[in-house]
Design a protein around this nucleic acid. Structure first.
Lengths: 322, 322
DNA sequence: TTGTATGCGTTATCAG
DNA sequence: CTGATAACGCATACAA
């Protein structure tokens, strides 16, 4: 279509001047600036990004590698993309569908100069395979990893879950049942371990048969309220995998006349905005800051800067449901 | 890093020859081919895609524009990406989060030569705004649209839903309750209209209060089984928004000793693979073919070809649940 | 304040 | 079968 040459010719200036106008860089007399701008507007000209990428040797784009559309991804992405944009970067989603080859393809984009860095939610290939790509650009992951080449923004959910359990114990509860999200995820494993250790430490019985996995929606939370009501030996406190599930429970409980926390105490997880609306005691999980840190780590490597990172820790937010 | 020049120097040949080896194009003596290949392997060389894109004037990439991660998107994407790959195209996901400006940014990529064409699930901007971008590359959409510039693979769900309702009527059912997916979606509106028209045509009562919206998961299907069981005036037939929801109903029904289709007839929607496993009567919704058509339409415009399109129509698949 | 010249890394045409 | 050379569209150092 139209290129910088054409604009230059029509405006009666050199390509360099057109470039200066487009990028508002360097000195341009206001008069010529307007002249050039008019031609740009008239021809509806937009620079060819591939030429710019090639010239600059960077794409100002970060690849976000994930095996699928998860709930985490969607939250993470929005925080990550926002902070990235603030620093002039775009984010492109690279879905692998749990295929190792697709993941390799994503990393190849780093090598092929299509993206400047990668943030990886969950890996499919071995770390040794992934590590090799770090020489083509920075790689940061959400998972726990001990590699000098790959940085991480991992948070140990063991700590967070423990916070909730201890809080309920202090409130006098001895019949605590926790629920979990994705069964095989490392975070669920860590949370489960916290439960195990808690039971052993406090000498209370771990009633595994009452717990459940793969809970995500508020609809499922509602269902749990019906389950609790029907249960003969009712637990006195429940610890939910997300605020979302917890508020489903609260909504159904309210409709059924179950009194929280009198009949049963409820603790959520995430401290999402809905938690406050339901006056829900929850564990603050600073995913937003985690996403910012992830970007900062990439940016620091890319631009040899030293932007400070947010300190990350789980926090108990005590509200009215305990 | 290493570029084609370096390879050429080390292999003692010209850039042109290296290019021929890399792309297996043109004549190269086997001996020199091997010599070059060795250097390529040794240096772990990969061509810079931006240079290739610039040179070729195309990226062999289609942008898939969607406002969010929907269930539809995930299914559509996998079919679409598969057929695209077969023709040498990649697919990149462009999420707009329902923001008009984000959608514009996605279309800008067409203008900036970052993608060759666009498939759009659901628009946020007016068609007049979107149309303007069609001069930079082909645009195909999943929605209904009458524009000479934008092609569509729209299917009217009215037809499909009608098929299910008529089938149940023929089987003698007069107490039919349909359920729906996303409340405001155009497809839901079309399905609802089919229900209205059906009731009027057959002279049966439309019991809107028994129906429900926003049903997606099999867990929600299970819940509907419990609802049905508790209901005093039980409908004799149910029409579900997706097979997924329907099989949840079937699973729960089985556990509760509800007999299908004796106690209640069940019809799904989509004819997904799970439908066959549950011997579920359903409406075949050829999304896979729709995705292929979407790509073919883009490809035909891009390459001035004339690949034939699949004929698209809803089909009733009668199985054991009616 | 503006223009000239050069290079980013690749492919394709044309000669040899 | 191979190499020199000219694009692709842009940004920038340097000169003017």
């Amino acid at each position: 279509m139209s290129n910088i040459n054409e604009i230059a010719k029509l405006a009666g200036v050199s390509r360099a001047t057109v470039s200066r106008v487009i990028n508002s860089k360097g000195y341009v007399k206001e008069e010529t600036r307007q002249k050039v701008q008019k031609v740009v507007d008239d021809l509806d000209y937009t620079p060819n990004q591939n030429a710019i990428y090639l010239k600059n040797g960077e794409t100002k784009t970060i690849g976000l590698v994930s095996p699928d559309f998860s709930d985490i991804l969607s939250h993470f992405l929005s925080s990550f993309a926002t902070i990235a944009k603030k620093y002039g970067y775009q984010v492109t989603l690279l879905l692998t569908d749990y295929h190792q080859e697709s993941e390799i393809e994503a990393f190849q984009k780093l090598k092929q100069k299509q993206i400047d860095g990668i943030f990886q939610i969950v890996r499919s290939n071995e770390w040794e395979v992934i590590e090799k790509y770090s020489k083509y650009g920075p790689i940061v992951t959400w998972q726990r990893v001990t590699s000098p080449k790959i940085e991480s923004v991992f948070m140990d959910h063991y700590e967070g879950f423990k916070l909730g359990l201890d809080h309920l114990y202090e409130k006098g509860h001895r019949e605590i049942v926790p629920f979990f999200g994705i069964e095989k995820s490392l975070n669920t494993v860590a949370r489960y371990k916290a439960w195990q250790d808690f039971c052993q430490e406090k000498g209370v019985a771990l009633q595994a048969e009452k717990s459940r996995y793969n809970l995500h929606t508020s609809t499922e939370g509602r269902e749990l309220a019906r389950w609790w009501e029907a249960e003969k030996e009712k637990p006195t406190a429940l610890l939910f995998p997300t605020d979302n599930v917890a508020v489903g429970f609260l909504a159904e409980a309210r409709e059924r006349g179950i009194s929280v926390p009198k009949d049963v105490a409820v603790v959520g997880f995430d401290n999402s905005s809905i938690a406050e609306l339901f006056n829900l005691t929850t564990i603050d999980y600073p995913m937003h800051l985690q996403a910012e840190n992830a970007f900062f780590k990439l940016y620091n490597q890319l631009k040899h800067k030293n932007l400070p990172l947010h300190p990350l820790s789980f926090k108990l937010i005590t509200r009215g449901t305990t």
